[in-house]
């Protein structure tokens, strides 16, 4: 394994985790969107680098998809949506920022410990990648749990999918079928979410999930 190639892959995957962390403490929607676009760009670079060192040209397609859809089109679309719907620009948290960051650190430590121990015999490049990917997935999950606003939950979901793609490309030679379908299903998921956001807006003039929670469980 070429030392430099390894370090660059490491650097890119690590910056994805960093971007996930920064997403955790944003309190404005636009800033959050910009950061998400940055994370998607990092993902595209990371996937392209993997394509280069693995000599797997089909991964460039995945990188292209990440760049085009996740780094450009989706942030633009969400940006317009926030503007047109007049969504409240501040993000409400369920728990405080400090506590969220601590939980985030614990999750990253957990994923490092678990993955590095379990994959001791696997290809070193793949195992570091996988550890970072798990951290991104868990941080995305944390973000979905700690945010009330529907748009930021969607961003949390997409950053989680970024982690999944990082994992899929890190696993050497994983068939393209799956990668395309991953990208495709994200799109489908987004269409669904988009429809939902519009429908929610249509009815209640808010995209705050808490407003939906007013009817808890049972109908009375």
């Amino acid at each position: 394994m070429d030392r430099l190639a390894f370090d660059i892959a490491h650097l890119l995957a690590g910056s994805l985790v960093l971007a996930s962390f920064m997403l955790l403490y944003q309190d404005r929607l636009y800033a959050m969107l910009n950061l998400f676009a940055l994370q998607a760009l990092l993902l595209a670079l990371s996937v392209a680098w993997q394509a280069h060192i693995q000599g797997a040209s089909h991964l460039y397609v995945t990188a292209g998809i990440a760049l085009l859809f996740k780094a450009i089109l989706i942030p633009l679309a969400l940006h317009r949506m926030i503007e047109r719907l007049g969504i409240h620009r501040e993000v409400e948290n369920v728990v405080g920022i400090g506590l969220t960051m601590l939980a985030g650190m614990a999750l990253v430590a957990l994923s490092m410990v678990v993955m590095l121990r379990v994959t001791a015999e696997a290809d070193p490049l793949a195992r570091e990648d996988l550890a970072f990917a798990l951290a991104v997935v868990l941080l995305g999950l944390l973000m979905m749990v700690t945010r009330r606003n529907a748009v930021s939950q969607v961003i949390g979901f997409m950053s989680m999918e970024n982690g999944l793609i990082l994992a899929a490309t890190g696993a050497k030679g994983m068939p393209l079928v799956v990668e395309i379908s991953v990208a495709f299903s994200i799109l489908v998921a987004l269409v669904v979410v988009g429809i939902f956001l519009f429908r929610i807006r249509e009815r209640f003039d808010t995209v705050d999930i808490r407003a939906l929670d007013s009817f808890r469980g049972e109908r009375r």
């Binding site: 996988l130 997935v137 994992a167 696993a171 991953v182």
Partner: peptide
């Protein structure tokens, strides 16, 4: 969330 965890598991099986 469930489906995402399942995909991660699928990738690990592949690994």
């Amino acid at each position: 969330v469930g489906i995402a965890l399942a995909l991660f598991g699928t990738i690990l099986v592949y690994m």
